[in-house]
């Protein structure tokens, strides 16, 4: 899938990484989820909202990081891997918009993206895919950990749809890296 995998590419300047991340953040703030199935979180009694807001903000932090990673890495990808990464970035933007919306509905304030993220110095398509794999994997582990702790069932269900899509991203990246199919159960340790 990766046409240029292994080919030496010029190093992406750090300034580009920062600009890319902030561009993605701007896109996030400007947009909203196109496929929302957002539950009515504001109907939850307020004492149970606070823990949910903290958990959801952790998820939002991870989504911001994933958006920055895809945005920074896409210029180094070509062919099918490039197309897949662009599509996955769009979906991560949707996830962030959805989670930010859930936080807002719960009366909370969503965390902002960091000004910069340290992704090292990816030089090749293979480097980028090796970066994206753990970024997605961290998200899976976090969602699996938080889902049982989210109190309203409707929020659990909504977050599980994000988990399921991120699991697809991991499967897509693993296939591109030539790694074996995952286990029957997604655990976040793949």
């Amino acid at each position: 899938m990766v046409g240029a995998a292994g080919a030496r590419e010029p190093e992406l300047p750090r300034r580009h990484l920062l600009v890319a991340a902030s561009t993605a953040a701007a896109a996030l703030l400007a947009g909203c989820s196109r496929h929302s199935s957002r539950p009515k979180v504001h109907k939850i009694p307020s004492p149970s909202r606070d823990p949910d807001v903290a958990l959801l903000n952790h998820a939002l932090d991870l989504e911001h990081a994933a958006i920055a990673a895809y945005t920074a890495g896409i210029p180094l990808l070509t062919g099918a891997a490039h197309a897949a990464a662009k599509h996955f970035l769009d979906q991560e933007l949707d996830h962030a918009g959805e989670i930010a919306g859930l936080i807002k509905q719960a009366g909370g304030k969503g965390n902002k993206p960091q000004l910069s993220y340290d992704f090292g110095h990816p030089r090749t398509a293979a480097d980028v895919l090796a970066l994206l794999h753990p970024v997605e994997h961290v998200q899976l582990a976090a969602y699996l950990e938080m889902i049982p702790r989210l109190s309203p069932g409707s929020v659990r269900a909504a977050v599980s749809t994000v988990l399921a899509n991120d699991a697809q991203h991991v499967a897509g990246i693993r296939a591109t890296l030539g790694l074996a199919a995952t286990s029957p159960l997604v655990t976040g340790a793949e």
Binding site: R149, S160, N165
Partner: peptide, 29 residues
Amino acid sequence: FKVMSQLTSPARLRLAAGIMAGEAQHALV
């Protein structure tokens, strides 16, 4: 997806979420 809002046991919620995510990977394949 429907059951995720109804289960209450943390262990079974984690199991159901893991299976649901696995099925989503199947759908991708």
